[in-house]
């Protein structure tokens, strides 16, 4: 089966019901995407399909088709720079394990809506669990990134 991952065509031989997460991690060695729950409840496995955030642990690889898969390793562009810069600026991560997923969700949010309200931020980020509870800084970093994109 062919997949478009981070702009490259990849060939994988796996059963179609294999979750995209495990294809990325175990077949393609793209380990930035993390396993947290396996049932789309924590968001650690968030990747983009054609720019849309999805939970790769519940996305069967057979359903991906020609959609462009972007993982944390393949993120780039103005919004990505703004988000990662904001994350650095106020040292958001603690253990860091969930942060690939947080960044993926935050980039998708600001790509769709450059000036999100607090309610927009909560709605977009509610699916991403952080057991270190870095939420206070995640909220702040998204606001800062949004401001920097405006300027």
């Amino acid at each position: 089966m062919k997949l478009n991952v981070n702009g490259r065509e990849r060939d994988v031989e796996v059963p179609e019901d294999t979750p995209l997460l495990w294809v990325l991690r175990d077949e393609l060695q793209l380990t930035g995407t993390k396993f947290g729950c396996g049932i789309a409840q924590c968001g650690a496995c968030t990747v983009h399909l054609d720019g849309r955030p999805v939970r790769s642990c519940m996305t069967a690889v057979g359903k991906v088709g020609e959609a462009k898969v972007t993982t944390i390793e393949g993120l780039s562009g103005r919004v990505t720079d703004a988000i990662q810069g904001a994350w650095h600026e106020i040292d958001v991560p603690q253990c860091g394990y969930c942060q690939s997923g947080q960044v993926m969700s935050a980039v998708a949010l600001l790509t769709k809506s450059a000036k999100p309200s607090d309610a927009d931020i909560e709605a977009a980020m509610k699916g991403n669990v952080c057991r270190c509870a870095t939420y206070h800084r995640i909220r702040q970093a998204i606001r800062n990134a949004s401001d920097s994109l405006e300027g």
Partner: peptide
């Protein structure tokens, strides 16, 4: 002092046990 592990924990490069190949 900026944290040493922030960049690798923001771009997916940090290696945890689960990532060891």
């Amino acid at each position: 002092v900026p944290k040493l592990d922030t960049p690798s924990k923001t771009n997916g490069e940090a290696i945890y046990t689960i990532d060891v190949q």
